[in-house]
Design a protein around this nucleic acid. Structure first.
Lengths: 237, 237
DNA sequence: GCCTACAGTCTACATTGTAGACAAGTTGCT
DNA sequence: AGCAACTTGTCTACAATGTAGACTGTAGGC
């Protein structure tokens, strides 16, 4: 066989279409979803697109920017309706949506969480700031003073991200080995030092993340509503 | 000068003491604190210790293990008294301590947050699981049913980590340029799309993370205590 | 003394991100 | 159409990284 046998052995959408930022980012996301963050190298992504790796630099300044792009792409999947008059219901729905999003793209969560730590707020990709702006809008429209809206947002988003991290930590990718692996792992712990953790093994196994998130949100929202002079929302405390 | 001029030009604690895991990890932590995660390469750390980089592999199986070690080291700075009868006060104190810890080691926070995502619970470094076990112990001793203790822990730790991430995101390392940089960043945002965010600039600048954390904890703890049949703790709802 | 184990070093290599020169292809103008 | 300006894609090259494997000390036990 000639050295030029197959120009794009693995996946290549069309034959040789023009590239675009969206195409590149989508491919990157697909790769991360399928094989994890480490698999996302310039060469690998190039190969996945049937293109020279260097070409990618036309669509992302460097690898970090590419990661930001993936973050942005994922966050764009999140729908927010800033005009919903029932802010509590809306926040609750968003929370569940974001949770599902995270479960759908678990490998991207580290990006969502860490990339903002390396970039001052104002310089983040715009798509990343959209949820913040829209939720502020939602709250302000609902009658909160802007500063209070910010407080609510922070408590809410903080809790939400915390929950997602928590849940993903106990999330084992391979559902068959789930219980076995978990117990096996726990079994390794010295019983002297970790009695409670070991005893909780059965409870740990059937973690209902959705219910737990919902409870937390309920507590938080009613608590927030009580502490701040809330608008016409139907608070049942 | 000969090619063997100075064997350890930069920092070298003693002359040439025997290495140990603690020494290596401490140096690694110092390096991360000083220059960020990316600066922690095997060669650089070796140089910092005046040793050949390969020697480090005697004390950490690979780079990932080294990162885990740093996480563990930092978490060990956190003091927990699982015998305190006032669980609410204890949780509140721990929250503030952890927050300060995070502010002291901001570059380590990504590790604290992401490393557990790559390791099934049972296989984490033991030092990392200690807080979990001890808080469970605290709650169970205080009278919670074990399963409820787990719920409380999850809500609590979730919120706590979420808050820390939130706060660090708005934390600008250089305090002089803080306001300027922040506003500058925000100024870049298209006013059409981000009116609320831009308007909140002044509020964003003086973020009182400590107060905000405390309020959140208050809401969460009293909420949790109300929802679960709590023990003799003094709940003031 | 010698022998075994382990600490530390050296050399070497595959893999990564990315700069810079170039080629090929596309678009707009006249 | 024909040329020019620009955009896309490719190639070559290099410095930096993690780490395997062989080697060299050095310390302690007989």
């Amino acid at each position: 066989m000639s050295p030029e046998a197959n120009p794009a052995p693995p996946a290549a959408t069309g034959k040789k279409k023009r590239l675009s930022r969206e195409i590149v980012l989508s491919a990157a996301l697909a790769l991360v979803d399928a094989e994890g963050l480490d698999a996302l190298t310039m060469r690998r992504l190039g190969q996945e697109l049937g293109r020279d790796p260097m070409g990618l630099y036309r669509y992302a300044e460097n690898r970090a920017a590419l990661l930001d792009g993936v973050s942005e792409l994922v966050l764009n999947e999140l729908a927010i309706f800033p005009d919903d008059p029932d802010w509590q219901a809306q926040l609750r729905r968003i929370a569940h949506d974001l949770r599902l999003l995270a479960l759908r793209h678990p490998n991207v969560v580290p990006l969502l969480v860490t990339r903002p730590l390396s970039t001052p707020l104002g310089l983040r990709p715009l798509g990343t700031l959209r949820p913040l702006e829209q939720i502020l809008s939602l709250l302000i429209d609902a009658g909160f003073a802007p500063a209070d809206a910010l407080h609510v947002y922070r408590a809410y988003y903080g809790f939400l991200y915390g929950h997602i991290l928590n849940e993903l930590q106990e999330f084992i990718v391979d559902p068959d080995e789930n219980e076995a692996l978990l117990r096996l792992g726990l079994h390794r712990l010295p019983p002297k030092d970790f009695p409670h953790l070991r005893a909780l093994a059965p409870v740990l196994v059937d973690y209902d993340g959705m219910a737990e998130l919902d409870e937390g949100i309920t507590i938080l929202l009613s608590g927030l509503a009580a502490r701040l002079s809330l608008p016409e929302a139907p608070a049942k405390l």
